[in-house]
Structures are given as structure tokens and as C-alpha cells.
């Protein structure tokens, strides 16, 4: 039975393909698919035509079971469309509308089959309307399944983007900067969780070895909140650096954060300064350097540079 039904369905689609396509496109355009300007009408038309062709092939060969291998190509194209929409920043609704807006043209096409049968007399009408009811149900199920598939791929694409951005952020925001011979700075930006602490700690310790640094300044100006966990991560980094033989100075502790830390009972057992400049001054003193004012005269400049 189902084979018969879907055979009729495939035939219906094949017969009315051009009408379905133009109706589908018109629906999507009136639904605002082109408004964002992220996709051109020609591109949308190509996507729709390709998908409709493949859907028809699937219906002809695989019935209405979306899991059938005959639908493989159609699903691939659908996945590709959904993925590209995920990348282009379409909303989930806009992506789902691509499949679901196909329902109305399909139902209209089925109705037209009944109308055509009406010309032939009573028995044909009854048979056609029975077949149409069944086909309608099949088409609904099929398109729902395909719609869900599209959403799944869409969400996956978005999650991939989020994961990639997360990785990029953790790489970007942990540079170790050399301020002077033997003095490193580690400007921390963003929340410190255990995963990032690990990355930060490793890159700091490795740089301490590479540059034989004596002092590392950890600047937490860019850390929005310091709770007990963050403080613990911070202390771990300091302790590890100390084990390597380098002193740490924590700088950039904002007044509110200092208050929070004291209230929480977190004691930073390290030298801490309010600003990076203060910390740098301390660091220079510890390595026995001082910043002095250079003579301003242009002629004296090269001499002064050499003397230092």
C-alpha cells in the first residue's frame, strides 16, 4: 500500500514540480528569507531546486521513509544547506522554515490531483481523496523528519563554532610578555577556570625556563571576578612558579576584588600591587635595576643610550 501511495506521491511531485518550486520560493521570500541579505535569491533557488529534485528521486526509489538510503543525497544537500546557514548566522527558525515551508506547496499539489480527478467522475474522486489523505500524512511525517535532521545539523554547526571560539579565546588571551631581561608579565583576561589555569600555568612556566626569568608579574586587571576558586587557581600558579625558582607579583587587583578576597578569607601569600606599573617597579628593584631620567639634549641621546 505504502509503495503505491508513495509512487503516486512521487508522480504528483514530478508532475507539479515547477509549480511546487515557484510556490515554495515565493513562500520563503515572503517569509523574509532574503531580508537579512545573507543569501541571494539565485542561490536560494538553486538550493531549492536541487533539494526538490533529490526529494523526488528519494520518493520514487525509497518511498516515504526518510531513513531509506534513497534519501541519502537529499539529506546530504539538506545538511549542507543547514550547515552553511549555521555558519552564516541564520536563526534556527529561518533554517527550519527552509524545510517546513515546503509543506504547503506539496499539499496544494496533492489537492490539484483531486481536482483533476473530479473531472472524471465519482469513483475516481473518492479514490483520489483517500489517496490524498494518506499522502498528506506521509508528506507531513517525511518533512518533519527532514526538518529535524536539518535542525540537528544546524545546531551541530553552531556548537562547532562555539567550541572553536572557546579554543581561540583560551589561546589568544594567555600571552606571556617579556618586560625586561628576567621579568615576565602575564596579563590575564577573562574568567579563570581550571582548564584555562592549566594553559596559563604551562605557558608561564615554560616561558620562565626559556627566558630564565626571575620575576613574573601576573596582572589580573582583566579578570572580572575573583572567587575562592579563582584565587586558588591563582595561588597554584604562583606556587608552581615559586617551585621553579621564580618570584611572582600579582598586580591589578581592583578595590572591590581586594574586598571580596578579604571577606572570603582568601589570603594571597604573595607580593601584590595595585597596578602593573607598581609591580614592574618592584620587579626592577629586585633585579637591581632602576629607571633614571635621561638628559634631554639631542646630542647627548646616543651617549646616554650607550651608557645604559
Amino acid at each position: 500500500m505504502a509503495q503505491n501511495g508513495s509512487g503516486g506521491l512521487a508522480q504528483t511531485v514530478a508532475e507539479h514540480q515547477d509549480e511546487i518550486l515557484s510556490e515554495w520560493l515565493a513562500l520563503q521570500v515572503s517569509g523574509g528569507a532574503l531580508q537579512s541579505g545573507r543569501i541571494k535569491e539565485a542561490e536560494l533557488r538553486t538550493q531549492c531546486r536541487t533539494f526538490l529534485d533529490l526529494l523526488r528521486d528519494g520518493l520514487e526509489q525509497g518511498g516515504t521513509d526518510p531513513e531509506a538510503p534513497a534519501f541519502g543525497r537529499a539529506k546530504e544537500v539538506l545538511a549542507e544547506v543547514s550547515r552553511s546557514r549555521g555558519m552564516q548566522g541564520f536563526t534556527p527558525t529561518e533554517t527550519a522554515a527552509f524545510v517546513f515551508s515546503l509543506k504547503r506547496p506539496m499539499f496544494n499539489a496533492l489537492n490539484r490531483t483531486i481536482e483533476a480527478a473530479a473531472g472524471e467522475g465519482g469513483g475516481a474522486v473518492r479514490a483520489a481523496s483517500a489517496a490524498t489523505a494518506r499522502d498528506t500524512w506521509d508528506v507531513t511525517l517525511l518533512l518533519d523528519q527532514l526538518g529535524l535532521h536539518a535542525m540537528e545539523v544546524f545546531m551541530k554547526a553552531r556548537e562547532d563554532i562555539i567550541a572553536r571560539q572557546g579554543r581561540e579565546i583560551s589561546e589568544l588571551s594567555t600571552p606571556v610578555v617579556k618586560l625586561w631581561d628576567g621579568v615576565l608579565a602575564l596579563p590575564l583576561i577573562g574568567t579563570l577556570d581550571s582548564e584555562r589555569t592549566q594553559v596559563v600555568m604551562e605557558s608561564l612556566l615554560q616561558t620562565i625556563v626559556d627566558q630564565s626569568a626571575e620575576i613574573a608579574i601576573i596582572d589580573i586587571t582583566g579578570v572580572p571576578t575573583v572567587d575562592t576558586l579563582t584565587a586558588q587557581h591563582l595561588l597554584k600558579t604562583v606556587a608552581a612558579a615559586r617551585l621553579m625558582g621564580a618570584d611572582c607579583i600579582v598586580s591589578g587587583i581592583r578595590p572591590q576584588i581586594a574586598q571580596t578576597m578579604v571577606h572570603l578569607g582568601v589570603e594571597l601569600d604573595v607580593t601584590s600591587k595595585a597596578t602593573l606599573a607598581d609591580a614592574f617597579r618592584v620587579a626592577l628593584t629586585r633585579i637591581g635595576r632602576a629607571v633614571v631620567k635621561a638628559p634631554r639634549a639631542e646630542a647627548a641621546a646616543p651617549v646616554a643610550a650607550r651608557r645604559r
Partner: peptide, 27 residues
């Protein structure tokens, strides 16, 4: 104690052994 490797330092800290009574140097 001198010349501790980064990985070793991280391990000790994770174990909660901060060796507070020991002075350290890079080399």
C-alpha cells in the same frame, strides 16, 4: 632546590605539596 621542570612543578602543586619550607632557584 633548583631546576625543577614545569611539569613537575604543576604536579607538586596539584598534589598540594607547595614545599613552603624550601627555597628554590631556576638553575
Amino acid at each position: 632546590v633548583v631546576g625543577m621542570r614545569p611539569a613537575v612543578a604543576i604536579t607538586l602543586v596539584e598534589l598540594g605539596l607547595e614545599l613552603k619550607g624550601v627555597r628554590t632557584a631556576l638553575n
